[in-house]
Design a binder for these strands. Structure first.
Lengths: 315, 315
DNA sequence: TTGTTTGATGTTATCGGTAACAGTTTAATC
DNA sequence: GATTAAACTGTTACCGATAACATCAAACAA
């Protein structure tokens, strides 16, 4: 393995100059830079990350903290981890999965946190290392997420274009930011069209939305579309409609959000918003590493939602 | 972060003694060891892996080299990587995915190689760092794999128990070790029952086995079971039987091997061998790290196959 | 008793980088 | 032309560990 010193000798400069060429090229004259670059090329020099890490007092470890319970049947978090790990590996960082309990064990260079609740804001604010959240928030933390508002806005728009005359929002009974955003997308579309909004909220389980629809079936007019905050809720709604003798998508429309695993097995498939969790995971990694390197906040990254057309809206 | 020096001071010994307590405890008196252990506990000392790596001239990088073309629709290699990465992360090693082309770029501490062919034996033998293969081989390399022979043996046995009177083996046209082992499992079962073996080999594509069955349909007696070397081949066989008017599983049985993704979509599901690729990936990682640490060969690890009962053998 | 061996512990140099500071050259100012 | 600031480049110490060597005391042999 060729080292800094080898390059330095070959280029007739000091180690420090070589180091500077790599890390602060603006502080070296072009002349020397050329010499150094050439020496590096000739010797096929690759910096030793380990030595660099030691000198910089860094660990090359990123902690991923998942604050929700993990539903292992959903590949959701698996994909997230794959995305993060892929990026981190690329930069020779390693990923450490931690929970709230063992959060403080061992050092690290930064955190990726997902599933944050309001009650978590305080301790996250106190962290001394860079943080990136997966999932939107309104507390000033950098985050990566889908544009939730745009998602429901698009789905609502599509439903109206397909001729449904009433839009009912079926949301998640939660005070989290993403839910507010999804509601906001629906509301905006409905208000633009001067329609009367109707919102309901449940825990995120298909049987809850299903029960609700069945109990209120007589009050629901034909030609209604349900804009649901998750695929799970959508699945429940669709099931209820079918059981009550309604026709999807002819008389009733249903849309979901998330489209991870359910979309694979449902029939007809839910018209929903597709998110590439892997891609967003990568973005989490990239953003955090940038933040670590620059020491500055990197802002947030919002992925534009993509419609995934299933069979629960008219064609 | 507490360092070796902090511990040394607290215990009134030199850094070196602390280091020895960790790495060569037999070379330190029990008395001092106790002092050091106590100091470590009190200060909650965790060794700095980075510094250790630098001193030991190690990289904490493991290269994973996949020598086959990757079928991205199959989560096979994804799962393998997840399994490996999980283990490596646990030990703060990072995984680098390489191909034959960029294999030599950058240093590492060891290799995990999968998809090895006979032509690869030479260069793999020349590697200077520890290697673990994923997939059995007969060249003395340590490996992790399913017990291929036991798999087809079990499936053949099951088919006979279900009353099929003839067993035809549909194998992969390849000189690789796993294929020989799968054939051997079939042969052993057939010979134990004093039956006449019948083997055919094709490339691993469903249409190849399908074509073969259709072309030879008139020569195949009822009550035959096909022991296939892969789920793909099994799928082709089943399709052919159905198209030719045969009944699965009543008149014909079919078994596969691997059961990764196809098993999810096929109907009826193939009776096959299930392998936990993630688990085997973890084992690859563990074995390689042990090998790196001990400097000695760790032998091979063979996972016992598990039957996955589908609907292609009689109940 | 004295030299030698053995085992336990401490000292020093090193792994391959980087920051902080020191030294040198060049350009700008009066 | 002398003074001073600015821009480069080199020196030194250090990050936190480990191996190799040095040291020292106790145990043993002659």
């Amino acid at each position: 393995m060729t080292t800094l010193l080898d390059v330095a000798k070959k280029a007739n400069v000091s180690k420090m100059t070589v180091s500077r060429v790599i890390n602060h090229p603006d502080k070296v004259t072009d002349e020397l830079k050329q010499l150094v670059y050439e020496a590096m090329r000739e010797l096929d020099y690759h910096p030793n990350v380990i030595a660099k890490a030691l000198a910089n007092n860094s660990t090359r470890i990123i902690k991923l903290c998942i604050l929700e319970d993990i539903d292992t049947t959903e590949p959701y978090y698996m994909n997230l981890m794959i995305g993060i790990a892929k990026t981190l590996d690329l930069h020779q960082y390693s990923l450490q999965l931690v929970t709230r309990r063992n959060f403080d064990i061992g050092n690290c260079d930064g955190y990726i946190i997902t599933g944050m609740r309001i009650s978590d804001v305080d301790w996250i604010k106190d962290l001394k290392k860079p943080v990136v959240l997966f999932g939107e928030n309104r507390y000033g933390f950098d985050f990566i997420d889908t544009n939730n508002k745009a998602g429901t806005y698009l789905l609502s728009q599509l439903a109206l274009k397909k001729g449904y005359e009433k839009l009912i929002y079926v949301g998640i009974d939660s005070k989290e930011s993403f839910e507010y955003s999804r509601e906001a997308g629906y509301l905006q579309q409905v208000q633009e069209k001067r329609m009367v909004p109707e919102l309901h909220r449940f825990g995120n389980h298909s049987h809850l939305s299903e029960d609700f629809i069945r109990q209120n079936w007589d009050k629901i007019p034909k030609n209604t579309a349900f804009i649901c905050a998750s695929d799970r809720l959508a699945l429940g709604v669709e099931r209820a409609i079918v059981r009550c003798g309604g026709k999807v998508p002819d008389d009733f429309g249903v849309t979901g959000f998330d489209g991870v695993f359910l979309n694979q097995v449902a029939s007809p498939k839910i018209t929903t918003i597709k998110q590439s969790i892997i891609q967003m995971g990568s973005a989490c990694g990239e953003t955090l590493l940038d933040k670590i390197q620059s020491g500055e906040s990197q802002g947030s990254l919002v992925f534009e939602p993509k419609l995934s057309l299933g069979g629960t809206l008219r064609d």
